Amino acid sequence: MDELNRQIVGHLLRDGRATFQEIGSAVGLSAPAVKRRVDLMRARGEISGFTAVVDPRALGWAIEAYVEIFCRGNVSPEVLQRELGVIPEVVGVATVTGDADAIVHVMAASMAGIEESVERIRTSGRVERTRTSVVMSRVIDRPARPGGAG
Rank of each mutant, 00 (worst) to 15 (best):
A58F: 10
D99N: 12
T132R: 08
V91C: 01
I87M: 01
A65V: 08
Q81S: 15
V90F: 13
G92K: 01
A109C: 09
V93N: 03
S117Y: 03
A112S: 12
I87H: 09
L80Q: 01
G113S: 07
I103K: 04
I114C: 06
H105N: 14
S124C: 10
S110W: 00
T132A: 02
L84N: 08
V79L: 13
V54P: 05
G60L: 04
I114Y: 00
T123S: 13
A100P: 01
S117W: 10
Q81K: 15
G60A: 02
E64R: 10
N74Y: 15
S110A: 04
W61E: 15
L59G: 03
I121Q: 06
R57F: 13
R72Y: 05
G113E: 05
S117A: 14
V75L: 03
G49D: 06
T95I: 09
A62H: 15
I87C: 10
V75T: 09
E89Q: 13
I114E: 08
G98Q: 15
F50C: 04
V75P: 05
I69K: 03
A65H: 03
N74L: 14
E68G: 02
E83Y: 11
A62R: 15
P88F: 08
V127T: 03
T132K: 03
E78P: 06
R82C: 10
V79Q: 12
I63Y: 12
E115M: 08
N74A: 14
L59D: 00
G85E: 12
V96M: 03
V104N: 04
W61H: 14
G92M: 08
R82I: 07
V75S: 07
V91Y: 08
E128G: 11
A52N: 12
V53F: 14
E64P: 09
G60H: 06
P56L: 07
I103Y: 12
G92I: 01
G73Q: 10
V106C: 05
V90I: 12
V93Y: 00
G73C: 08
E115T: 11
V93F: 03
V127I: 13
T132W: 00
T97G: 14
G125N: 13
V86W: 04
G125C: 13
V90W: 13
G98M: 15
L80H: 01
V96W: 03
V90A: 09
T130Y: 06
P56D: 12
V53A: 14
V96S: 04
A112T: 11
L84M: 12
D101M: 06
E64M: 07
E83Q: 11
V79T: 12
T97V: 11
S76D: 08
P56C: 10
V118A: 10
R122F: 02
M107T: 02
G60V: 00
E89F: 04
D99G: 14
R126S: 05
A52P: 02
G85F: 11
S110T: 05
